[in-house]
């Protein structure tokens, strides 16, 4: 009995403050998150804390998650759509240890979804919050290396160099060559980096029901897209934005033809194989098919 009590006392959640971060750290992140929501698409600087994982491995998303999460939350963490990859599993284990919240793979049951580079296929609801891990928050970095200058460009909504970059890309390649991290206009004011989600996911941000929070731990920036906010990919009148094309391809597991597919090369035969990127969606599709049969 004594041993059990000692074990309980030494368990993760009792050794640290609830949700790991101290209350002052949470307070700052919360203040900045509210400002980010009030100014959609604007990057709010914040004092990123040291976390027990290396910067660049989701410390931004993790800090926002820990500042937002409560005991009643149900958490889902995905990495490139998968619930079971290393980054997702480690982050889930850590958050479970310091909060003891319920963890799920079910996109519909989750109240908080922390994600690395995908948005679940199932439309999210107003009860849900999605938190994006962001490696590079500055969409203008491609055209301007100076932080002071990009800040001025955002301040004056001077995005001509970004438009020129896209135009030159079309001239050189016959296509806008940006795949993931496709820049978007938020609320008709700020150009924003939507994190390296595929083009496929961009339209899910537009006028979404859920709150979208973005955080870059290494670059120390928080930004947000509130629900019912206009989010438009950058495009020209005569050169429209288009998403990845999976025509004629389907998932080898569930047979789905309407989800975002991962392409896997078979090492021995060189054949290309396709699987749903969203593992929860794929499992549900497979189960539904099994039930029908």
């Amino acid at each position: 009995m004594k041993k059990n009590k000692r074990a309980e006392k030494n368990s993760g959640q009792n050794r640290y403050n609830f949700a790991f971060l101290d209350e002052n750290a949470k307070r700052e992140i919360r203040r900045k998150t509210l400002k980010a929501i009030a100014i959609p698409g604007y990057q709010v600087p914040f004092g990123s804390r040291e976390m027990p994982i290396a910067r660049g491995w989701g410390t931004g998303g993790l800090q926002v998650t820990l500042s937002v999460i409560g005991k009643k939350d149900v958490l889902k963490v995905i990495d490139q759509g998968s619930d079971d990859s290393v980054n997702a599993v480690n982050i889930k284990r850590f958050i479970k240890k310091v909060t003891d919240v319920e963890i799920t793979n079910d996109s519909l049951r989750a109240t908080l979804i922390q994600t690395r580079h995908r948005i679940p296929e199932i439309p999210l609801t107003q009860e849900q919050i999605i938190i994006f891990q962001v490696p590079f928050p500055e969409p203008l970095r491609t055209v301007e290396p100076s932080e002071a200058e990009t800040r001025r460009m955002h301040a004056e909504a001077d995005y001509s160099r970004m438009w020129l970059y896209l135009y030159e890309d079309i001239v050189k390649c016959g296509e806008i060559s940006i795949g993931a991290r496709y820049p978007v206009y938020v609320n008709n004011r700020y150009i924003m980096d939507p994190s390296p989600i595929p083009r496929w996911d961009i339209e899910k941000l537009d006028n979404s029901e859920c709150l979208n929070l973005f955080c870059a731990g290494r670059e120390k920036r928080i930004y947000a897209i509130p629900p019912h906010t206009s989010v438009k990919p950058l495009e020209f009148e005569d050169f429209k934005f288009r998403v990845e094309n999976f025509e004629g391809k389907k998932c080898e597991i569930c047979g789905c033809e309407s989800s975002f597919l991962d392409e896997v090369m078979d090492g021995s035969t060189g054949a290309r194989r396709y699987f749903c990127s969203d593992s929860d969606y794929c499992e549900k599709q497979t189960a539904r098919k099994g039930n029908k049969q």
Binding site: F18, L34, I37, L211, A224
Partner: peptide, 22 residues
């Protein structure tokens, strides 16, 4: 207590965040 305060702060913050985003 500090833990009760932390829990209450989190619950109020979620209401604040909900209100600011809606």
């Amino acid at each position: 207590g500090s833990e009760a305060r932390a829990v209450m702060n989190q619950e109020i913050f979620r209401k604040l965040m909900g209100a600011m985003s809606r």
